[in-house]
Design a protein around this nucleic acid. Structure first.
Length: 456
RNA sequence: GUGGUUGUAGCUCAGUUGGUUAGAGCGCUGGUUUGUGGUGCCGGAAGUCGCGGGUUCGAAUCCCGUCUUCCACCCCA
């Protein structure tokens, strides 16, 4: 046998059942996107490199899949550059295109490029693959699907409120109870950094703080120290480390800490508004939780940030994330257009639903009815009814060969086809069909019309 | 990018201190009354033991390299 073919690491094939289940999730998400007034768009799988590079931070740039130029790609570069190995310069010379890393940046590019055709505020959704040159691990792939909904051209905090409700609506519909929607605000983080006198270390500070629930207070403090944040500043952070209680309690203590930071208080005010709005229209199954340590999110976020954690007991990274970005389109030359959006991680949601056994049995591939093939004349008799069944919306197939009954029956069995129809000489003479229920074994001689009305 | 882990039939895995034709279960396939599947019984096909190199009389087994799997870190959906 020839060497077995394979696929690149971090990619997957999907079986019929898996595709069916992915579509089940996507259909729910799409349904709610549209209920909330979002319109679909699609963008190319790859963009010009300069559209993507520099938007996700240094780490992000490293993880962008670059596409090698076609033709004589070394022509533009010089031997010296190859020798010295200055990768950044070299990459930009031999690669001018890259696979998209997320859907938000291409969307910002889309908005700027088509600004004259767009009526603001513009609400779009997009469900497409993205690629990251990451090392695969649990729930992490190099090719995966994101489902994004964003609004650009509105500063209103009502958008944030709606997006929280949208998260809740989708997860409720997927029967994924008790997801935690964590919320924080970049302004609050900036405020804290300001108050402790570490404005210039904002990124290091937030990255370290983000790890609090994972590695604990001591380790976080160590990391901050090692990044050059001084002990006095870290001492000032104590109230943040020991923040407990309800959303409102946390807000109250943060107000005290941030009393001298204008930007910090602005962030608190935003968080307060969202909470009071949600309190008036309670979520159906998700929990909104203020998490001051939540810092992640890409470079471009400026206001509220979101992250969704799977239900308790499921070990999985975040299954969704998003936030407000005030100036993403500014990078592409369109000022003063604020955007806010959320993303659903299809692949991780799939894994969570699978682990919790929440895929409905009705989500399955394959037909509902198999006609057993008894031979040429019998299958011709069936052929007419096949079309009638299909026109009635019943997924139907005829076994292609007049193979042994055993083989045909076990085909039905293994494909979990619920009904089999036997039509041999006797049935043809009576003008009937023999309908067999595979689960119960029950068999009935019925007219084709009877069967259609039963199955429809 | 860092650290660890894995790779033997289609699938899940055994394989003893390196020693004759590499095994099991499941699956596949044929038979078991010629119009009846999921359980039984009997038979069969299928693996240059991830790939490349090395040590050895001899390597699935030891060494080196490489790719792959999975996990943690970094980062993220």
């Amino acid at each position: 046998m020839a060497k077995k073919p394979s696929i690149p690491k971090g990619t997957r094939d999907f079986s019929p059942l898996e595709v069916q289940r992915r579509q089940y999730i996507m259909n729910k998400i799409q349904h709610h996107f549209e209920l909330y007034g979002f319109m679909p768009i699609e963008t190319p799988s790859f963009e010009n490199s300069d559209t993507l590079m520099g938007k996700y931070g240094e780490e992000g740039d490293r993880l962008i899949f670059k596409i090698l130029n076609s033709g004589e790609y070394l022509k533009k570069t010089s031997p010296e550059l190859l020798e010295t190995g200055k990768e950044n310069q070299l990459t930009s010379q031999i690669s001018e295109k890259a696979l998209r890393y997320d859907l938000t940046v291409p969307f910002a590019r889309y908005v700027v490029q088509h600004q004259n055709d767009i009526t603001f505020p513009f609400k779009r959704y997009q469900m497409q693959n993205v690629w990251r040159a990451d090392r695969p691990q649990k729930g992490r792939f190099r090719e995966f699907t994101q489902c994004d909904a964003d609004v650009v051209g509105s500063n209103s905090l009502l958008q944030e409120v709606e997006l929280v409700q949208l998260y809740d609506a989708v997860f409720t519909d997927l029967n994924l109870k008790a997801c935690t929607i964590k919320i924080n605000n970049r302004k609050v983080l900036a405020g804290i950094a300001q108050v402790i006198g570490a404005d210039d270390k904002l990124i290091d500070f937030t990255v370290a703080l983000d790890k609090l629930d994972k590695i604990g207070k001591e380790k976080v403090q160590e990391e901050m120290l090692s990044k050059g944040i001084d002990q006095k500043a870290i001492d000032l952070l104590d109230p943040v480390f020991s923040l407990t209680g309800s959303y409102a309690d946390k807000i109250a203590s943060m107000k005290v800490l941030l009393k001298d930071s204008q930007i910090g208080l602005k962030g608190i005010e935003e968080l307060e508004f969202i909470n009071s709005s949600i309190t008036q229209m309670p979520l159906k199954s998700a929990v909104l939780d203020l998490d001051i340590t939540l810092a992640r999110g890409l470079n471009y976020y400026t206001g509220c940030i979101f992250e969704v954690a799977a239900p308790e007991g499921v070990a999985m990274g975040s299954i969704g994330g998003g936030g407000r970005y005030d100036d993403l389109t500014g990078i592409f030359g369109l000022k003063d257009v604020s955007g806010v959006g959320i993303s659903f991680g299809l692949d991780r949601i799939y894994l969570v639903i699978e682990q919790l056994n929440l895929f409905p049995d009705s989500v399955r591939a394959g037909v509902e009815v198999l006609f057993i093939n008894f031979g040429k004349s019998e299958s011709q008799y069936c052929a007419g009814w096949l079309s009638r069944f299909r026109e009635s919306g019943i997924k139907t197939e005829l076994y292609p060969d007049s193979a042994k009954m055993k083989k045909q029956m076990s085909y039905a069995d293994r494909n979990a086809i619920p009904y089999v129809i036997l039509a041999g000489e006797n049935e043809i003479n009576d003008g009937k069909l023999n309908l067999k229920n595979m689960a119960s074994g029950e068999q009935l001689q019925l007219t084709p019309e009877d069967i259609i009305s039963r199955l429809r």
